[in-house]
């Protein structure tokens, strides 16, 4: 019993941290200047990075405004179901006390890298402003 509790400490801590971050970003509006530091990449280069707009997307999702969230950063919204699924698998594994035996197929990880890099480029191009935050 205690060992199961100890094994579930990791997933529980991750869930608590995620809830705290969503709660904070939902309460403290990133749309107002001065609440959060600017993205260093945007600050230095003037270009958007793939993560730009993710705070505003999390804020919108915390207020259940999915359309605005997709408008700010579609990758952040797409990451939510993926993270939930990974977290569920992690929790189930921890509850059963099993080690991870599954490794994501390499093509999936490589295409994820491609999507991030492509998104980074495309959202800075003229004519694709709808991808920009």
């Amino acid at each position: 019993m205690t060992s199961a509790v100890r094994r579930l400490a990791g997933p529980a801590a991750a869930a608590a941290l995620a809830a705290a971050v969503v709660g904070y970003v939902g309460a403290v509006d990133p749309n107002q200047a001065g609440h959060y530091p600017t993205c260093p990449f945007l600050f230095v280069t003037g270009f958007y990075c793939p993560g730009c707009g993710s705070l505003r997307a999390i804020h919108a999702m915390a207020h259940l405004d999915l359309l605005t969230a997709v408008d700010r950063n579609p990758l952040t919204v797409a990451a939510v179901p993926l993270l939930l699924w990974t977290w569920l698998r992690w929790t189930r594994r921890a509850a059963r006390g099993r080690a991870r035996t599954w490794a994501a197929p390499p093509w999936a990880v490589w295409s994820l890298l491609g999507v991030i890099l492509g998104f980074w480029l495309l959202r800075n191009l003229p004519g694709l402003e709808w991808l920009a935050p």
Binding site: C39, P40, F41, L42, C49, P50, G51, C52, S54, L75, T76, P106, V109, W110, L112, L113, I116, L117
Partner: peptide
């Protein structure tokens, strides 16, 4: 990568893959 917006994060993803 997303929170730090740095090429080092991309290198990290490449190694992770």
């Amino acid at each position: 990568t997303v929170l730090c917006c740095l090429p080092l994060g991309i290198v990290s993803i490449v190694y992770a893959a």
